[in-house]
Amino acid sequence: MSEEKDMQGILQSIIKVELYGKHKDEKKAPTIPVVTVSRYCGANGSETAALLAEKLGVQLYDQNLLDTITKEVKTDKYLLERLDEKATGPIDDFIHSVFTKHGASKDDFYRGMIKVILDSSRNGGVIVGRAAHLLTTSNRMFRLRLEGSLPVCTERVAKRMNVKKSKARKFILKTNEERVKFVKKVFDRYTSDTAYYDMVINTDMYTPEQLVNLVIMTMSEAGFRVTPPKIKG
């Protein structure tokens, strides 16, 4: 785990230098919308994240794009030179199998995430999953988590996958367990710990459109550069 912490430390340093080197006072600097979206399986996370990116006018970094970047980042010499100064030990088979489905290693995963965070810091972005909220503690990043009750999420997943509820329920529990294990193993944190998020919402009560409005409103209140939505009332 110490090697992983070394790697995380380097990530933090690089990210901070790249992101904040030009700003003496981080809090007063312009805040480009960068949102990390952690989600419970079946909580409409992907749909909401896509809508949020669209409303904010920023890039959506979803699973497919992250996988592509993870593969492509091997050619980024700037990052490689700095990251390769520290060895990270053997590839963890578990992480490899669960989160890097296209033959990329744990190092590739970290490198990919750095690139995503650096890119998004310049141009804004909505980053889905990958525990991106734990890669930097900067207040320039809005850390969102979307949750849902198991019965409600089961209904959604069953409908989306066109499977029986019992199968959907198993799928949800398995997916969430894998996500929890990943975050616990790599970051020694729990996904359900609300202290690591700026906002956590129960999606049972809201449509993706309503969720996006509430998120943008909260971001606006927190000083992010967004156009406040119209909330009823």
Binding site: L150, Y197, V200, N202, K232
Partner: peptide, 29 residues
């Protein structure tokens, strides 16, 4: 099996008044 909370907000980045405002908006929605 339901969630434990409907809304969680960080008081590190939001003031009391801001949390109240967002909470009421969430209730209305």
């Amino acid at each position: 099996e339901k969630t434990y909370y409907d809304l969680s907000l960080s008081s590190e980045i939001l003031s009391v008044d801001q949390i109240v405002k967002i909470t009421i908006a969430a209730m209305k929605e």
